[in-house]
Simulated assay, not measured.
Amino acid sequence: MLVYEFKLAGKQQQFNLIDEAIRTALFIRNSCIRYWLDNKKVGKYDLSAYCKILAKNFEWAGKLNSMARQASADRAWSAISRFYSNCKKKVSGKKGFPKFKKRGHSVEYKTTGWKLSEDRKCLILTDDFEIGKLKLVGTYDLHFYQIKDIKRVRLVKRADGYYAQFCIAFARKIEIEPSKKAVGLDVGLTHFYTDSDGNKVDNPRFLRQTEKALKRLHKRVSKKFCQGQLQSNSYKKAKDKLARKHLKVSRQRKDFAVKLAKCVIQSADLIAYEDLQVRNLVKNHKLAKSISDASWYQFRCWLEYFGQLYGKITIAVPPHWTSQNCSNCGEAVVKTLSTRTHKCLHCGTVLDRDENAALNILALGLSTVGHTGTNAWGENDLCLDLVTDSDKLTR
């Protein structure tokens, strides 16, 4: 599946109608959650049928395309099924009980409610909102794909404008020569990661670099806010600048994660990394901001995506004791977080703490099955098959 994104160019009136469509999709999603709460035995198809009832009861809800209403119901069912799955797996902590959303940022169409112009440079929305023709601004060329291959079109609202995402059914596979190399990665805060060869990548700390500017913009927003009154245009402009600055930080993180993950995948045939539970790590309030700024989970998602794309093996191993055990003899050498050098009194090994952990991670990846991939991309869990005639793991 490919996702091509274009920025939309149009009139302000058209963007206001997109906002109305987004609010309608949010209403349908929340209504489906309410319907599920009142009727616990309903399933996915019951929610899709309930969309038709909502369209009859609310005239403005009927303006949204029928498949777009079903896509909103699918979002509600995705939250419900995730909750059921976490309960079945007995996930520790919160199970992710479906909640009502206050704000929506996107509306999704399936195969109807939209069409492309003849030159495929404009998107035309054909539902009863009458949004009309919007120009697609971007470098991708949609002529390479059939219209029937475009399974979904998503309109997304961001701080700097409106975007259209095209989800295209396309089996993408890239073949490169094997490097005959295996590597283990230990992520950290001082360095973004240290591999088993001793190579280090500095942590960019995008949020820390922008923190002063963000604080200044936050002060401007708070000064212009009027309690219990209609907000002025200057408040809206200050709020927009703050949102754009946060959007820039998030894009910097994504760009860094994508490029670094692709580089790692292309340089090795097997990549082992820690199966970290980031949501538990951020409970440490002294390190929560630094951990969130590092975006380890996003890096892992892209690592697994490119691993599948290039046909490489990615293995997530349990992180327990990888920093404490000696990579040479296996003896436990208890260290505090401030101790950055591993010194084993049993065998005399002296290594950087992170490099020692990376070697332990690689050894675990080679010696145990672990698990490959994750459900971060909304797909089913991938399985590992252990090939009997070799020690290779295949996805």
Rank of each mutant, 00 (worst) to 15 (best):
D389M: 09
L393Y: 14
T190Q: 13
L303F: 03
D19I: 01
R208F: 08
S390N: 15
R158Y: 09
G138Q: 09
A76H: 04
K110M: 00
A363Y: 06
Y305Q: 12
E211P: 05
I124L: 03
V350S: 07
F306P: 04
L247Q: 15
F225L: 15
L17Y: 12
G161F: 06
W60C: 01
E108N: 14
Q209M: 06
K254H: 02
T336M: 09
N203Q: 03
A171S: 13
K110F: 00
S48H: 15
A55I: 00
A76W: 01
Q70S: 01
E130N: 15
D255V: 01
F100S: 04
R103Q: 11
A272R: 02
L345E: 14
N57F: 08
R300Q: 12
K90P: 00
Y235D: 11
T336C: 09
G113W: 08
L134Q: 06
L155S: 03
A358K: 04
K7N: 07
V153N: 11
Y35W: 11
I131K: 10
K181Q: 09
T394W: 08
D38P: 00
A21M: 07
L364P: 04
S250I: 10
L303K: 11
L37Y: 14
G113R: 02
E379V: 08
G93E: 13
V3T: 13
R253W: 07
G104R: 15
R208C: 12
N233Q: 15
Q209E: 12
W296Q: 03
K151R: 10
F144C: 06
L64A: 04
G378K: 10
N328A: 12
I150G: 06
D128V: 00
S92N: 14
H342I: 05
H105Q: 14
R244M: 04
R205M: 01
S390G: 07
R279I: 09
I33V: 10
E355C: 02
K212D: 06
R75I: 02
P98G: 09
F166M: 01
R279V: 12
A9F: 12
K239F: 14
D240C: 08
Y35C: 08
C329D: 01
L214N: 11
V350C: 04
L337C: 10
S81R: 15
N284M: 01
L54P: 04
H342S: 04
Y193N: 01
S327Y: 05
F192I: 01
L276H: 12
G43W: 11
K94L: 12
H246K: 11
G184M: 10
P319S: 07
R216F: 12
A169G: 05
L214H: 03
D240M: 06
G138T: 09
M1L: 09
H371A: 00
I53H: 08
S327R: 13
V249P: 05
A25E: 00
L230N: 14
